[in-house]
Amino acid sequence: MEWPDGFGRRFMVTIDTEEEFDWATPGASDDYDVSAIAALPAMQRRFAAHGVSPIYMVDYVVAANEAAAAVIRDILVSDPATAVGAQLHPWVTPPLGDARARACAETFAGNLPREMETAKLDRLLAVIERSLHRRPCIYRAGRYGLGPHTIAALAARGFRLDASMRARFDYSGEGGPDFTQVTAAPFRLNDGAIVELPLTAIYTGLLRRRGATLHPLLGRIPRGRGMFARLGLLSRVPLTPEGTPVREAVHAIGLAARDGERLLQLSFHSPSLVPGHTPYVRTERDLARFHAWWEEVFAALARHGYAPASLQQVLDACADAKRAVGPAGLEPAT
Results as ranks from 00 to 15, higher is better:
V84Q: 02
A28E: 14
P222W: 05
A63N: 05
S131V: 07
R223K: 12
Y139L: 08
A105V: 15
D5T: 12
A229V: 00
E20N: 11
V250P: 00
A36Y: 00
R143L: 14
L234V: 06
Q87F: 08
R73P: 02
S310M: 02
G192Q: 12
A288E: 13
G192V: 10
V314F: 03
G27H: 11
E174G: 07
F159C: 02
F11I: 12
A119E: 13
R135F: 00
R45K: 14
S29W: 08
R289W: 06
A249E: 05
E18H: 08
A101E: 12
R123Y: 00
R223C: 00
I15M: 03
E18N: 08
V52G: 03
A68P: 01
A302V: 01
F108E: 10
A105E: 15
L197N: 01
R135A: 12
G176S: 11
R157G: 07
R210H: 14
G276C: 11
A193R: 15
F11S: 08
E242Y: 07
Y60H: 14
A317T: 07
L121K: 02
I194Y: 08
D316L: 04
S270V: 03
A324G: 09
A48Y: 00
C318I: 13
L76G: 09
R140F: 02
G254W: 06
P94I: 08
D170Y: 04
K120W: 02
L161P: 01
T334K: 05
